[in-house]
Design a protein around this nucleic acid. Sequence first.
DNA 1: TTGTAGGCGTTATCAG
DNA 2: CTGATAACGCCTACAA
Lengths: 334, 334
Amino acid sequence: MGSMKDVAKLAGVSVSTVSRVITGNIPVEQQTRVRVEDAIRVVNYRPNLIARGLRSKNSHLIGLVVPEVIHATFTSFIKYTEEIVNRHGYNLILGNTQSDPEVEEQFIDTLLRRNVDGVIFCRVSDRSRVLGILERTNVPIVVLDRSLGSENVHIPLVSLNNRMAGVLAAEHLAELGHTQCACITGPMDIALSRKRLEGFKSHIESRGLSLDATAVVEGDFRFGSGVQAMRTLFERRAKFSAIWAQSDLMAIGALQELQRRGVAVPEEVSLIGMDDINLAEMVVPTLTTIAQPFERMCEEAVQLILRQQENKPVPENRIVLDPELIIRESTARK
Amino acid sequence: MGSMKDVAKLAGVSVSTVSRVITGNIPVEQQTRVRVEDAIRVVNYRPNLIARGLRSKNSHLIGLVVPEVIHATFTSFIKYTEEIVNRHGYNLILGNTQSDPEVEEQFIDTLLRRNVDGVIFCRVSDRSRVLGILERTNVPIVVLDRSLGSENVHIPLVSLNNRMAGVLAAEHLAELGHTQCACITGPMDIALSRKRLEGFKSHIESRGLSLDATAVVEGDFRFGSGVQAMRTLFERRAKFSAIWAQSDLMAIGALQELQRRGVAVPEEVSLIGMDDINLAEMVVPTLTTIAQPFERMCEEAVQLILRQQENKPVPENRIVLDPELIIRESTARK
DNA sequence: TTGTAGGCGTTATCAG
DNA sequence: CTGATAACGCCTACAA
């Protein structure tokens, strides 16, 4: 792969001329253009992005920070962000931090030293100092899938309307005639779990019913905790004809335990999940769920980065997307 | 974040002196070193990797190419490669190609233009031209999780001993007294699926038994195809007391279908999976499986890249790692 | 329309 | 031990 110099020499012109035909839109005589283009082909010239970046102060690189890779939600974020970023001519540099503040800081540091054009954070923890560090630079940032305290109102944010997710689940179950519901939540120290439960509960209460405290079990979003939660519900002898699990994995865990105990889904118990991961369509019965618009969330996040970078006005830096109820086989009329 | 120039000005020295204290190991007088270090702190100087890369022709960037992100195997590769690469002071640039040759080529192109220090390919297809393209450059490459035709003997390769995986599964079942086995394979146009089946079959035959043709069903590694394959086995009225599925997801799909039909696992049918993904420990019964050493595979791949880059001799460019049998609850004596 | 010159932030070479 | 200086590959005034 030759450089501009090689091309220039071969075509008998100066490097600036070569640069001009590369960048286009700057007048170059037809004749010399052709000569240059030929030379480019001969030496197999491809503009070097490192050099270009050094000159223009941007790298066409976007950093994505996730607290974990092997995790349905973040895997989706990785997939879509990579795809979208690519479509815009950028590449993705991935960092898995395991929520370790030290790793986070160290990763951000190298991102800055690479002149990345933006950083997308998935669900950073409260105690993380990276947002502060980044704010002092002028690198565009976006926080994805997290609610931020009021101290950070100016940081662009893309998140799900988690409250609405709870409402959608409750609404669907209510319409099917269920009056006794259970809920398997995510970790309660994560705001989005609380908001989901809040929405679920408040809709139920708005119908004059109540969500029994024994029918609420805390999980950790993973499969095993769904199984466990289900066992807990049985041990407590909680009364319910329907369950909302705040992640599909937990729902599938619950499903497994129900089937093992010979409880028919949806005939005896209706079950709703959340996320709409691939598995939701694969289990039997297929899982009714609350879909997160992963792709749109990533799209908005990338848009926010690009807008900031182009110094375009950012009309709205708080983007909250609506979840959607996907009705499949695991829920039925009571 | 200031530059070397800023530091030099503040400390009253030349940029070369600053460079020397940064790189270390080049003699600088104690006094001036302290002055420089102070200045570095004041202007918050961090060496710019773009500039450094331009100068030294390396980027400390490694490209990882996967055909899909949302997929147990590749997600593991992504996770571990990122982690290991990081440990060596590199960053990971991720590219998802969907096995599209055009996307592959385009991604490789930008990787080259970014002066990446190496590229790791996961399971590239035969018809892919990227290996050829890369071979003509001198960028270190490694192919992960794939057997390569003899035309490419010189390309470093890290793969699993897939034949052995089949042998391990058959051996375990045989030891438990099973004489009639079934197998749910991966796509048969992928070499590793064929090799796994070959190992499975040949071990069975070495015991004077045979693997009935009706007891072999082709899947696609995904959950749904496990469910489907199980149904096919029942439709065919195949006789078996044990099943090996070539992926955990298919095994869990098969498990689901078995449970739905009231077949007890492992009491009536023993079940082995493959991969040892998280889910394998989470289902009930927990899944006996053939573990792939994902982390070690990634480690070897990264090592091969680094060795090539340092121009160290690469003692062995064909690394084949052994799978391991993990015994859990889903298999039992017949 | 084209070439020259300077600089992006580093590092390496060569004097001093 | 330290300071100029050149060079990495590219882009962009400015001048011709």
